[in-house]
């Protein structure tokens, strides 16, 4: 599996670190941020932290090019075949942080 980094060109996948599914978004946690907390908040966080679609087929994922340009990338990859459909820069600096899409 080789990944074509939009900044560095095609590199072997050992240069990259995997974060995982790019779809889940961090839910608001009002209770932790000092608020009273909304109903279902803990369940939403449990879902975000622990549960996975673990999809068999094409999924979009965060990868980090630590051995190159140190950019966060969003890669569409097939988990059944390892075929990579697209690689693009994750939007915004530190795109893996809360709320980014």
């Amino acid at each position: 599996m080789r990944i074509a980094c939009p900044f560095c060109g095609e590199r072997e996948n050992g240069e990259f670190t995997y974060l995982g599914d790019a779809k889940p978004k961090r839910p608001a946690m009002v209770a932790i941020d000092g608020g009273a907390g909304a109903p279902g908040e803990a369940e939403a966080f449990y879902d975000y932290v622990y549960l996975r679609d673990n999809f068999a087929g094409e999924m979009s994922e965060y990868w980090y090019h630590g051995g190159g340009c140190r950019s966060w990338l969003v890669i569409e990859r097939n988990t059944l075949t390892h075929d990579i459909k697209s690689v693009r820069a994750a939007p915004g600096a530190g795109a893996a942080k809360a709320g980014a899409k």
Partner: peptide, 16 residues
């Protein structure tokens, strides 16, 4: 290998 996979085969960096 460190990434989601159902492919039953891995890649070179982990072999190394």
């Amino acid at each position: 290998d460190g990434y989601n996979s159902y492919a039953q085969r891995g890649n070179m960096p982990v072999m190394e």
